[in-house]
Each structure stands twice: as C-alpha cells, then as structure tokens.
Design a protein around this nucleic acid. Structure first.
Lengths: 198, 198
DNA sequence: GTTGTAAGTAAGTAAATACTAACTTAAGGA
DNA sequence: TCCTTAAGTTAGTATTTACTTACTTACAAC
C-alpha cells in the first residue's frame, strides 16, 4: 500500500529504532529496513538521501520522545522529591520502551561516523542532568534533602544510577523490571540524602 | 619480520583493542587489523579461524587485565573505605587505559553476535560488584559505613557511579581526568554513607 | 647442511553494502 | 477525466567484507 512521505518517514524511523534493538545498531542496513517496512530497498532512498540522514532523523525523534516524557512526568508530580522519582521513572520507562537507546550511545553511527548524533544524545543527557539538578536544589530549599552536598553532584549520581541500571539490564537477560528496580535504588539513595521514609 | 604465533596473537588482540577505540568496535575489519599489525589480511587468519574468535580472545584479555588490576589495588590498601577507593580508582584507570571498554559493552559484536563476549563482560561486572560489596560489608562491620543500607545496593550504586562517569567521559570530549572526577564523586557518595572527612 | 613445520603472501570469491538510473503506477486536484 | 506529482519498482554498480586456496619462505631441531 502506498503512504504519504510523512507517514513513511515516521515509519522508517520507528523501524530503525526497533531493528537497532533487535539486531544491533550497525546491523541496521537499508535492506533490513526496507524488508521490515515492506518496500524495496531503493524506495527507502526516496525518503532519505543517505543513511546518515536516517540516523539524524532517529536522533531527532528520540530527543523529542525523551523531552516529552520528562515534561509529562513533571506535569503532575509536586514535592521536589516526588518530581525526582517521576523523572527517573519516566526515563526508565523510555529505556524500556526503546531498549536500543543505551546501545545507540555507543554505536559506530554515533561515535565515529555521525557527530550530529553524538551531539544530540549528549545534549539530552545534559538536559536530564539539568532537570534533576533543579529538583535537587528545590528539595534542599525545602529541607527535604541534605544541603551539604552539591546539587550538581547529586544529579550526576542520579543519572549514573539510571545508566548503570540500564547497562545491567541490557547486558543481562533484561530479567528484572527496570522501573521497579530503579525506583527501589532511587529510594535507597534518597534516604542517604536525608529523605525520611523514602 | 616473522613472529611466533603467541606473540602475533597477543599483538593482534592489542591492535583490535586499540582500533576499537580509534575507529569503533564494529569498524575493526580484518583488513584494518592486518594493516595495523603490518602483515597481509590473510595472515590474520593463520592465528584465528574466524573474526568472532578474535573478539573472544579480546574479551579474555580484557577480563584478565581487569582482574589483575583489582587484585593489585587491593594488595596495599587497608581500611575497607580505602579499599573501596582503590578498587574504583583501579577500574577508572583501566577505562582510561583502554577507552574501548565502555564501547565494547554495547557493540554489535557483543550484544547480538557474540554471546561469549557478553557473558565475559557480565561476569567481570558481577565480579567487581562482588568485590565492592565485600568491602562495604567490612566497612559496615567496622562502623565506618552506615548499616541500614543493604551492602549489595551500595555496591550497585558504586558500579553505577563508575559506569555513568565512563559514559559521560566517552560521550564528551574526554575532557576531564576520569580518576580525579571519579574519586571526587566517590567521596561525595561515601560521605552520604557515613564516612567522615571523606 | 637438510628438512619439516608453520608463518606469511598473492590472488581470489561470494555475499553484503550503500546508493543510482530509468521506468511504472497510484492518488488527488483541476 | 485527465494529468501532474511523487511513491514505488527493477535492475543494476562499485566497494567492502570475511574467509579460502595454493604457493613461498623463515627458522629451529637434528
């Protein structure tokens, strides 16, 4: 069936993201994409001039997903500590929904070939760090979090918690519930940071 | 010049590890290896039957390096908290010496193609976790670390600290001193865990 | 020295890759 | 209803990849 260019582009991006998880980011060939989309290989190039452009589109899409997920998480949650939990939970949910995400951080397309990709991911990591730090500062102001620790350092520890967990999940059999284990560890860390009944 | 098989094998492994960092793990072709070693491409296959076998040898080599580095670190250090610092410092030194290490965790060779590779890395991560946990338990026994946190959870937080830092280092311009920044963050975390004058 | 072994080479192969050129056909507006 | 546009196809190409085969040569033990 024939689709409009916009729909097809979106479909291609989604297929790449899915394939990246299932067969590995650099194994995602134009042939594999075409087979999954259900068109000929050449048709892919009607929508993207080069393969690198496809990855840029994937990066844009992922950046949008993350940004939206964080905004959504912050919409409802309200004491700073709850907002921290919401952010971490949202990020873990995104990783679960798109397990290729951690792998993309270190794929060849990103690290060697495509500087734009790397920049996009670094930018999103920095954004998450910023959001977390903001909440840590608010929590310290409310006396909900210890004040004698730099908010930036706490934010680093929290992003590391997410990434370390994602590595463990990816490397293993993905045999635990990312969100549950993450929020449990977050509670441990928050208790160390002075939150009572974390 | 002609070398013995053992020397050549070791050289090939070292070259792969170096190339993996410089051009990306999956860009390491047999041709690139051969050029770097200084022999013809076909000569590589005198020493390894398949490319997958080469990666297994790399994994074995890396596992040995890590294990030795941890043992060395623990040799001298003595109060548990110092031993924790030594372990973390040693691991960060290894990552600095072999920057391909974090990338290998997520390369195609590991994640999709080569189950043996993944198993080897998971095993080493588990080993580090075990060593850290052991020291945490000792620290708690000495009343140097808070007792109301599970030692296993603390070990997870510490390995995550290392991994998160490595990601930040790799993704960025490697523009900070891994060991310094890592030990600084470790001190922050240790202070949260009850260590005075961390 | 001679000789067997194994490290090395030259020259190839089949398969896979990103990308192209020329043609076909579906779909929506005039 | 026709006709323009653009999504799609078929059939390629040049390059790169892991791996092979048949031959050559360095070297160490005897």
């Amino acid at each position: 069936m024939r689709k409009s260019a916009d729909l097809r582009k979106a479909q291609i991006v989604a297929v790449i993201l899915d394939l990246a998880d299932r067969i590995g980011p650099d194994r995602v060939t134009t042939g594999a994409i075409a087979a999954e989309v259900g068109v000929t290989q050449a048709a892919i190039f009607r929508h993207f001039p080069t393969k690198a452009e496809m990855w840029v589109a994937v990066a844009d899409h992922v950046a949008g997903l993350l940004t939206a997920a964080w905004a959504e998480a912050l919409k409802e949650a309200n004491p700073p500590v709850e907002r921290l939990k919401a952010l971490v939970g949202a990020q873990l949910d995104q990783i679960k929904a798109h397990p290729a995400l951690p792998m993309l951080l270190f794929s060849r397309e990103l690290n060697v070939e495509n500087a734009a990709l790397r920049a996009a991911f670094r930018d999103r990591l920095a954004a998450l760090h910023g959001l977390l730090m903001q909440e840590v500062i608010a929590g310290q102001r409310d006396n909900a979090l210890l004040r004698d620790v730099a908010a930036g350092d706490v934010a680093v520890l929290l992003t590391s918690l997410i990434q370390g967990l994602a590595i463990r999940w990816s490397l293993g059999a993905r045999d635990f519930v990312l969100r549950d284990e993450g929020l449990r560890l977050l509670a441990v860390q928050l208790r160390l940071l002075g939150v009572r009944g974390g």
